[in-house]
């Protein structure tokens, strides 16, 4: 009985401690950001590994998501005789929600897990300690560029995902089903607002990039330096990133789109 209460207390205090550590780590990484933002070659390297290498999965997923949305949307819309609104439905759901969120989830699985594993292995093989010995700050040399790359590549990837999705919906809707091309685009343009929808969607993806980047670097940095430790750190990155993206999405959606008639 007492042991279980002790275990519960230990569980809670360790979680809170971990959260405090994460907050302190976020502060530290923000402090070294100005140092590492000038080392563009490092950031470009990380942009290649997390951004460019995710390009294919993002574009193909976007295309398929757009196609599925078009098929499902058409199925419902044609019951009410407003199949021409397909463009609006697809564009709004992609620009506002699916683009940023699905991109962030895919990014967490494709790129952040790799970042965590890489940093955790550096920790396990004491490369980080070696850097420290050579008076190279591992946080600004290893952590911050990967964090920055996540922030920079997320909005770009989300924009590519959304564009690919709209092209997919266009292929299904206009080319295969036969909705009028002009109505598809004009209805979309009339109902998608650049500031409210497009900019808020991009803002969302920047926030998701910040969260996912921070989590991946943090989990790698404080991974237990064993084989199991690296494995569980990678898993934790994907799980925590996905959950926090969905939670942040709820908060941001309420802030951005509630009360907008």
């Amino acid at each position: 009985m007492i042991a279980s209460i002790e275990a519960l207390g230990h569980f809670i205090t360790s979680r809170v401690e971990r959260l405090g550590l994460a907050a302190r780590f976020s502060g530290a990484i923000l402090l070294v950001l100005w140092v590492s933002i000038r080392r563009t070659s490092l950031i470009i390297r990380e942009l290649y590994f997390s951004g460019v290498r995710s390009l294919s999965i993002i574009a193909v997923s976007g295309l398929f998501v757009g196609m599925v949305l078009a098929v499902q949307g058409y199925e419902v819309l044609q019951r009410y005789g407003s199949a021409e609104s397909l463009g609006v439905i697809v564009a709004l759901s992609l620009v506002r929600e699916l683009g940023p969120v699905v991109t962030a989830l895919l990014f967490a699985g494709r790129a952040s897990s790799a970042v965590t594993a890489e940093i955790a292995l550096m920790r396990a093989t004491e490369q980080l300690a070696a850097m420290d010995m050579m008076a190279v700050d591992p946080l600004s040399r290893v952590g911050a560029p990967r964090f920055l790359a996540a922030i920079l590549s997320m909005p770009l990837l989300a924009a590519i995902f959304t564009s690919a999705g709209i092209c997919g919906a266009w292929i299904i809707g206009v080319k295969l089903i036969g909705i009028d091309d002009g109505a598809f685009w004009s209805q979309m343009q009339a109902n998608v607002d650049v500031r409210i929808d497009v900019l808020n969607g991009l803002l969302k993806s920047i926030v998701f990039g910040t969260a996912v980047g921070l989590i991946s670097v943090f989990e790698g940095y404080f991974a237990v330096p064993t084989t199991e430790g690296i494995a569980s750190a990678t898993t934790r990155t994907v799980v925590i990133s996905s959950l926090s993206v969905l939670l942040l999405d709820l908060v941001l959606t309420v802030m951005m789109f509630r009360g907008l008639s």
């Binding site: 070659s41 470009i44 390297r45 942009l47 290649y48 951004g51 460019v52 390009l55 564009a91 620009v95 590549s153 909005p155 770009l156 990837l157 924009a159 590519i160 959304t162 564009s163 709209i166 685009w185 979309m188 343009q189 009339a190 998608v192 607002d193 650049v194 929808d197 497009v198 991009l202």
Partner: peptide
């Protein structure tokens, strides 16, 4: 690296322009 990343950024920016001009109506 520079070239491929530049290409990636260009495609991303192009997608943003597409969203602003063709999807939204700037």
């Amino acid at each position: 690296f520079d070239f491929v990343v530049g290409l990636f950024v260009a495609i991303g920016l192009l997608a943003m322009v597409f969203m602003a001009l063709k999807v939204g109506n700037l």
